[in-house]
Design a protein around this nucleic acid. Structure first.
Lengths: 255, 255
DNA sequence: CGTTACCTTGAATCTCCTCAATACACGTGG
DNA sequence: CCACGTGTATTGAGGAGATTCAAGGTAACG
């Protein structure tokens, strides 16, 4: 992994040059070639910082932008007419946001920030030139989408076939693992920047039952979630409580 | 939509030439350019016919192939250690199968045929040249994946936030709509080439409860499923029973 | 004509949901 | 400094929806 020499680049003021992108330091991401880096840098038109609770994208609208998460947590969700909300997945640094609007007439889901989120903004009408001139980047997008699909598959298994206890154990492990991959978690500890209501809406459970099951896991010494901080006390116990399929290897991400 | 003149092409014997692909007649798919058609034809290395019940891909294995469904129905699923099965989605003509193995070390799910299925076989190690030399096709793959992700999103909402009755109504409508798009259904009728057990494993419900709820829908004159044939008796009633979000526009597919 | 696979229905049970009340932390204004 | 409001977490009680167990019915097939 030959690190690129960091040299100054022309970018809009205030924007992180892609060459200095903190994500590139992560071993989880692949190295860009020079032309790719140049392209991405010209493709990136802005950097956006949004406050917790702010919507990045709203279902039913059309966005001319495509985003990449540089820092912070968000979540993707849809709501039914009567207010029922289903959180589809959590969005972390390195994730792509809003590709769907490049493909469909309008957004089919919303995205909302949980912490302060820094986004790199790309104009979606230049997506075609990305595919045409930098097929390696096109393949990377495919990679990201396949990984995303895998996450959705696993969620579907959880909601369809796992008990409340299993779902919760699974989600806790999943979030820890994903956060750890981008350096947001370590030492079996992790800050969860959301409420148990979010958790319940992810799991397809009621808030009350989610809370009771979480308390059960804490009481059994498997994991503890207090004051917005998760501590995994017994990773093995939690794994078996999750009905994890141990043969399942989690794919490594890159951008 | 300027239809291409059908002319003979050199292909392996017994294989349908891509120029004559029956799927291309469908208004749901876009027209290929000449070079694209040539490439796809050379990319396609075989045509495979498999019997109902046969596995196309098996979880935990590594496949060197990428498939496209030319005809027939299949389903994609995973199983937990103790045998619980979750069907992730149904695979119909025009769908891509096995892209995940092009991206991950091994398959994370299995695919099994429901009817006799005809597959076009592509070597996954040439996927890179597809992206490099025919970015339009790369973009098409992105399109297909985005559509697939949308389907998974909707399933997640169903399993997470809809009642048994709503889930069943929704799935019936969803299947009818998808089948109709590729010419497998019309006049509110559709052949369902699987059992209620498959249905239950898709919906995250037990077989018994699935059956009882289906009977309820039949009794109320909304839809009837007898002898492998589904009849939608009251599309509007079924739609409202599904807790459909009417603002949600279903994207049109192409390959 | 018996076997097998699938569909159907009833009954008992349990998981999870809703309703309801309380506790706790935090910030605001008096 | 304390009363108060708001948002979140916690716990109990009762009930609905879905599960499991169990038993038949029906159709296809050798």
């Amino acid at each position: 992994m030959n690190r690129l020499t960091t040299r100054p680049r022309a970018t809009a003021s205030g924007m992180t040059p892609c060459a200095l992108c903190p994500l590139r330091k992560s071993p989880a991401f692949r190295e860009f070639t020079e032309p790719e880096l140049d392209f991405v840098e010209s493709f990136k038109t802005a950097e956006l910082k949004i406050a917790p609770g702010t919507s990045v994208l709203v279902e039913g609208t059309k966005s001319p932008h495509l985003f990449t998460v540089l820092a912070g947590w968000a979540f993707r969700y849809t709501t039914l007419d009567d207010g029922r909300r289903q959180i589809l997945n959590y969005v972390m640094p390195g994730d792509l946001v809003g590709l769907q609007s490049s493909v469909f007439a309008e957004m089919q889901h919303s995205v909302e920030a949980l912490t302060e989120v820094t986004l790199c903004v790309f104009p979606r009408d230049r997506l075609w030139s990305l595919y045409r001139d930098h097929p390696g980047l096109g393949l990377d997008i495919t990679w990201l989408m396949a990984r995303q699909e895998f996450v959705l598959d696993e969620s579907l298994v959880s909601l369809g076939r796992r008990s409340a206890r299993e779902r919760i154990a699974f989600l806790l492990l999943h979030l820890y693992q994903r956060a750890a991959q981008v350096g947001l978690a370590a030492d079996d500890e992790l800050v969860l920047p959301f409420t148990q209501q979010h958790f319940a809406d992810t799991l397809g459970l009621s808030l009350v039952h989610t809370n009771k099951t979480l308390r059960q896991l804490a009481h059994q010494g498997l994991a503890e979630w207090r004051g917005g901080r998760l501590r995994i006390l017994d990773a093995d116990g939690l794994t078996s409580a999750a009905a994890f399929d141990p043969t399942r290897e989690t794919p490594r991400p890159f951008i």
